[in-house]
């Protein structure tokens, strides 16, 4: 795989938009990986939480929108509680989901919950 790294206007607009929506400074991540190390759902993810932030830093909007991770994050905030830079990755994931939605990427809505669960599921 070859990636041509380009940080042009479009990429910066994307990074800034993510920062704005999430309220997080994605530039400040120094890629320690702690978020991924503690993530309870990491074993199911195609890209790890630290890689998610990394791809935002690289302006890789498409790769992010295509990733399964967006909908595996359980918003448990374990990463946020231990990140040395105080980054709330759940918020960043939510911001990407928000941008992904108009592009036809949404997970499941309440109407897709199987009927046999709907009675019980909080």
């Amino acid at each position: 795989m070859r990636t041509i790294l380009k940080l042009g206007k479009q990429e910066h607009r994307f990074i800034d938009r993510i920062s704005e929506l999430s309220g997080e400074n994605v530039y400040s991540c120094y890629q320690c990986g702690r978020c991924s190390a503690g993530c309870p759902m990491a074993f199911e993810m195609d890209i790890l939480p630290n890689q998610l932030i990394r791809l935002v830093q690289l302006g890789e909007e498409e790769a992010l929108i295509a990733s399964k991770t967006l909908f595996i994050c359980a918003s448990c905030f374990t990463c946020q509680s231990r990140c040395p830079k105080g980054i709330n990755i759940a918020n960043v994931a939510e911001a990407i989901r928000y941008l992904a939605e108009p592009k036809g990427k949404d997970h499941f809505g309440p109407d897709e919950v199987p009927a046999e669960l709907a009675d019980e599921l909080p």
Binding site: P40, I72, P114
Partner: peptide
């Protein structure tokens, strides 16, 4: 303090 899996019990 670990997560129970949240709504992934529906999707995964």
């Amino acid at each position: 303090q670990e997560c129970c899996g949240s709504y992934l019990s529906v999707s995964l």
